[in-house]
């Protein structure tokens, strides 16, 4: 019998709805991990996402990564652009996971969504989570399209790599004409992230 010694791999699960920019966001994170010297695997799950379905992507990084997808209960970071999709990811999380979640519900055709139920469930998820209406922060920067980059800034505060790898990745992936805007958004996210991290930290100390 062998001992399945788990190699030191960390992972981010991106979850959202078709059109949310999950693929680009996960590309940026994967690139940042590569630039930081990690081995990286990324896997996208988007059966028919163009038609409004759920989209998710795993980014796994570490010294050596084999599997492109992660196991239940093993995801370290959740990056969710929508609350129902965040809840769908629940089974992949554990008590040490950190969730950056956009406070938003995308309606589903011909279904009434019990928003109270969604919020109650999200409340019950036992992870460290930052649930915030990032659209408001994006609007402050004058562009609703930079929500993901702000969230990436928040995420970067919790990840074991220098923030400059993220900015380098953004530089490489985001088109020139919206680059400055996105870098601003990333820094805005860092401000939010540093804030929440300190708060969460103090709460844990108490």
């Amino acid at each position: 019998m062998c001992n399945g010694s788990k190699m030191d791999i960390k992972s981010i699960l991106f979850a959202g709805v078709g059109g949310d920019g999950i693929i680009t966001a996960s590309n940026v994170a994967a690139m940042a991990c590569m630039l930081a010297g990690f081995d990286v695997k990324k896997s996208e799950i988007h059966g028919m996402s163009q038609r409004g379905g759920s989209v998710s992507a795993f980014v796994r990084f570490g010294e050596k990564v084999y599997s492109p997808t992660d196991a239940l209960g093993q995801v370290n970071y959740l990056f969710a652009t929508e609350k129902i999709e965040a809840l769908r990811a629940n089974k992949y999380l554990n008590t040490a996971s950190i969730g950056i979640i956009n406070d938003r519900i995308v309606p589903i055709i011909n279904q009434e969504i019990d928003t109270e139920y969604i919020d109650k469930k999200l409340e019950s998820v036992k992870i460290r989570k930052i649930v915030k209406n990032f659209a408001e922060d994006a609007l402050k920067l004058g562009n609703p399209k930079v929500i993901n980059t702000i969230m990436m800034g928040v995420l970067s505060c919790y990840m074991p790599l220098e923030k400059e790898y993220f900015t380098e990745a953004i530089n490489k992936i985001i088109p020139k004409r919206i680059l400055t805007l996105n870098l601003d958004a990333f820094y805005e996210g860092i401000l939010i992230g540093e804030n929440t991290r300190n708060k969460n930290y103090s709460r844990e100390v108490n």
Binding site: V17, M48, S54, E85, L87, I108
Partner: peptide
Amino acid sequence: DFELPKRPPA
């Protein structure tokens, strides 16, 4: 694994 509304493609 929460009971959640499915998001079928449309």
